[in-house]
Design a protein around this nucleic acid. Structure first.
Length: 427
RNA sequence: GGAGCGGUGGCAGAGUGGUCGAAUGCGCCGCACUCGAAAUGCGGUUUACUCGCAAGGGUAACGGGGGUUCGAAUCCCCCCCUCUCCGCCA
């Protein structure tokens, strides 16, 4: 969430930024936040005074007791009763205003970076880079959902039996291909200086709040109600939360972690004709890179992360394009997001396979992830958080299968993966 | 799931009603000594909110919440978590 001080001091900048997102309720919510904030401060100022008075009184009574002046002490006690009542009222008021302020604050999205283009929907995203040759496939080319059935490597019917739609079963070379991709992505990230993390797949409410999934997006996560835990929608959640309520030293930067996890998404209400096959699943595999950075270096890091992701796609020889998301299409918590889309030759569609974002201090403020500047250790500041998929597997698999299929019904494995798969062809 | 122990500052660890935001040790920072370093000595070293142009004040926090009391780290109640043992089990 945005920092209250920033909203107080730079209200115009906040409003301008929110406008770029086409965030309709900006004026209203900002006014509410400032109002609750004002009331909260007034309550605190008075509460502090009352408490100070009560503290002094208690001290005096203590002195009198010690000196045996019991009568005088008793006389003062009545005074403190009324102070106590007043303090209770004020404390309640403080709590209420703080809570109300928070409730509004979490409804306000991040302010887009100045380079973010204005726009309303995915149609307004900017293609900033494109790489690779478009696959030239004949009419014989099959979409991946037909291919996987023919090759018998991924089974949706079995998944339906075990769980339900969107939970595929990977079999034989299909399973091995998954494992190969995961290992390839992890190895590449480690080589790029990331530390591998294996986090829990269930998270508590504090973690969900820290990265922004809670309070509003709980409907998108699977909920283990008995223990009030949530299945992670992405490794971003546990890995970023490693740094919740942490004060880092400036020398700790850059912090670069990578994790492979399965991801679970309810995807409520988002099913349709264009999400056939592997295009959208409830459970899928993803390797995620997460950085915690000094504010001065975070955009450099963002570029580095994009370059890493693009390098992976190039090594897999998948034609892709890089999009700079417009204000209207960006995620709630992001300040700048680049999406990578791969062209899938038989569906003849661009598929999003990665989303790389800088959240600046928006997540860090929720997480309370901060650092001490070297030159001024007292001046503790919020860090910047970033993350990106590197990469999400299902659509990579879909495009690999489609683009690398041959007319006689086989699929060629990209050379970089062969050491991981142990085979060159799926047939 | 049952029983027990515990939860205090960066860490370890004292503190069982007031003068305790908290001893002591370690760590860390600064200074002195030294050619330099080590050792030693001295000083400093939590965070949040808030008032103030500033200097500098105030308040809160000892797992979380509530209560008793003029006054709570300390007493009482509820909850959470760690650890140990038992049970179950990969």
């Amino acid at each position: 969430m945005l920092q209250i001080d920033f909203i107080r001091d730079k209200k115009e900048i906040v409003l301008q930024g929110l406008q770029k997102r086409n965030f309709a309720r900006a004026e209203e919510l900002i006014a509410q936040v400032l109002d609750f904030d004002q009331k909260r401060r007034e309550a605190q100022t008075e509460l502090d005074k009352v408490n100070a008075e009560a503290n002094n009184l208690a001290k005096s009574i203590g002195e009198l007791m010690k000196n045996g002046k019991k009568d005088e002490a008793e006389a003062m006690k009545t005074n403190s009763a009324s102070l106590k009542n007043r303090a209770k009222e004020l404390e309640q008021a403080m709590k209420d205003f703080t809570q109300q302020r928070l409730e509004v604050l979490v409804q306000i999205p991040n302010i887009p970076n100045e380079v973010v283009p204005a726009g309303k929907s995915a149609d307004d995203n900017e293609v900033v880079y494109q790489w690779g040759d478009m696959p030239e496939l004949g009419d014989w080319a099959l979409p991946h959902w037909d291919l996987i059935q023919k090759l018998d490597i991924i089974d949706f019917e079995l998944g339906n039996k075990i769980t339900g739609a969107g939970f595929p079963v990977y079999k034989g070379k299909g399973a091995k291909l998954q494992r190969a991709l995961i290992n390839f992505f992890l190895d590449q990230a480690i080589e790029a200086g990331y530390r591998e993390i294996q986090p829990p797949l269930l998270i508590n409410r504090d973690s969900g709040f820290g990265t922004g999934q809670l309070p509003d997006k709980d409907g998108q996560m699977y909920h283990a109600t008995e223990d009030d835990l949530f299945l992670i929608p992405t490794a971003e959640v546990p890995i970023t939360n490693l740094y919740r309520e942490v004060i880092l030293n400036e020398g700790d930067f850059p912090i670069k972690n990578v994790g492979y996890t399965q991801c679970f998404r309810r995807e409520a209400g988002s099913w349709g004709a264009h999400v056939r096959g592997l295009n959208r699943l409830h459970q899928f595999d993803k390797v995620e890179i997460v950085q915690i950075q000094h504010p001065d270096k975070s955009y450099q890091a963002l570029e580095e992360m994009c370059a890493h992701v693009q390098g992976l796609l190039e090594k897999l020889n998948l034609p892709y394009r890089r999009l700079k998301l417009c204000g209207g299409d960006m995620g709630f918590t992001s300040a700048l997001t680049f999406d990578m889309e791969v062209f899938s030759g038989a569906q003849k569609r661009w598929l999003e396979v990665s989303s790389v974002s800088n959240f600046e201090t928006y997540q860090a403020n929720r997480l309370q992830c901060r650092f001490r500047p070297k030159d001024n250790p007292k001046n503790i500041q919020l860090a910047h958080t970033l993350n990106g998929s590197a990469l999400a597997l299902p659509r990579i698999v879909a495009s690999l299968l489609e683009n690398n299929q041959t007319q006689d019904g086989k699929v060629k494995i990209p050379a970089v993966l062969v050491p991981y798969t142990g085979f060159e062809w799926i047939e």
